[in-house]
């Protein structure tokens, strides 16, 4: 038996918004420690890794490990049927081929339930090695989304260059070129408003704007984003979900021919 109760269904709505354009379907692996998901996009260029801790749920019960293949488009349809502050419960029997999703309003005057068919999906897991990244940039998630959106107007590729002075985002295309430089914030009122850089070695890598913009769909989940980079390895774009867990996106760099 698997059962998880979340006090704000809006959190799961935002999570689905953050992954539904990269993944059509995904396997949710449930265990007593929580729910995990790891899946690559169709082109095998990026990977979504999500972890929701059991302690982040109001109630969480998972008697046996369970892998649920979920069509994300179907789940988005169901999540459209609730309000952000509805309480939701997801439930499945062991070896079940359906998942039950229930919503209740806070005053419990409206209760609804939906049953969704589960799928058998081929799982292709990647072993992601522990990496000591050369540059770890923490910045406001809204600023990162703004930069990706603005610069993708000019070119398909974004160069991210990190030095101890700051981080520079650059692109170029038919109409010209664009650069945005961010320096480390010297003073800030709230930690999430600042830009901080931990660096052991300068790094400069090129990434596809299209994917970066898709990762930015996670912006509503967190005020901060963490970019981790090392030479010639995939970029990690991480959004912490308050009290619940995190979503990490990995993106393979583009390399000069």
């Amino acid at each position: 038996m698997f059962e998880a109760r979340l006090l704000k269904s809006g959190q799961l709505k935002k999570i689905l918004e953050a992954i539904k354009e990269l993944l059509k379907e995904a396997t949710f692996d449930c265990s007593d420690s929580g729910i995990q998901l790891q899946a690559m996009d169709d082109a095998h260029v990026s990977l979504v890794s999500m972890c929701l801790k059991s302690t982040g749920f109001d109630k969480f019960r998972c008697d046996r490990n369970l892998s649920m293949g979920i069509n994300l488009e179907s789940m988005v349809k169901i999540m459209k049927c609730c309000s952000n502050d509805d309480i939701m419960t997801i439930k499945a029997q062991d070896n079940a081929d359906t998942l039950t999703i229930m919503f209740e309003t806070k005053n419990q005057e409206k209760m609804s339930d939906y049953e969704m068919k589960l799928m058998n999906l081929d799982q292709e897991h990647l072993g992601i090695p522990e990496t000591n990244y050369s540059c770890i940039i923490k910045m406001p998630s809204s600023e990162f989304a703004r930069i990706c959106r603005d610069l993708s107007q000019f070119g398909d590729s974004l160069v991210i260059a990190c030095t101890k002075e700051g981080v520079k985002f650059s692109t170029s295309g038919d109409i010209g070129s664009a650069n945005v430089k961010l320096s480390q914030t010297s003073t800030f009122d709230k930690e999430e408003e600042g830009v901080t850089i931990e660096m052991t070695q300068a790094v400069c890598l090129t990434f596809a704007c299209r994917y970066l913009n898709l990762f930015c769909k996670a912006t509503p989940l967190s005020t901060q984003v963490i970019l981790s980079m090392s030479g010639d390895v995939p970029l990690v774009v991480e959004y912490q979900i308050e009290e619940l867990g995190c979503i990490r996106y990995y993106l393979a760099p583009k390399i000069e021919e």
Binding site: V45, L126, S157, V233, P234, A252, K254
Partner: peptide, 14 residues
């Protein structure tokens, strides 16, 4: 123009 790599170039399939 730089070419796009796949993730499997960096991480092993398990």
């Amino acid at each position: 123009t730089p070419i796009q790599n796949e993730l499997a170039e960096f991480f092993a399939l398990i």
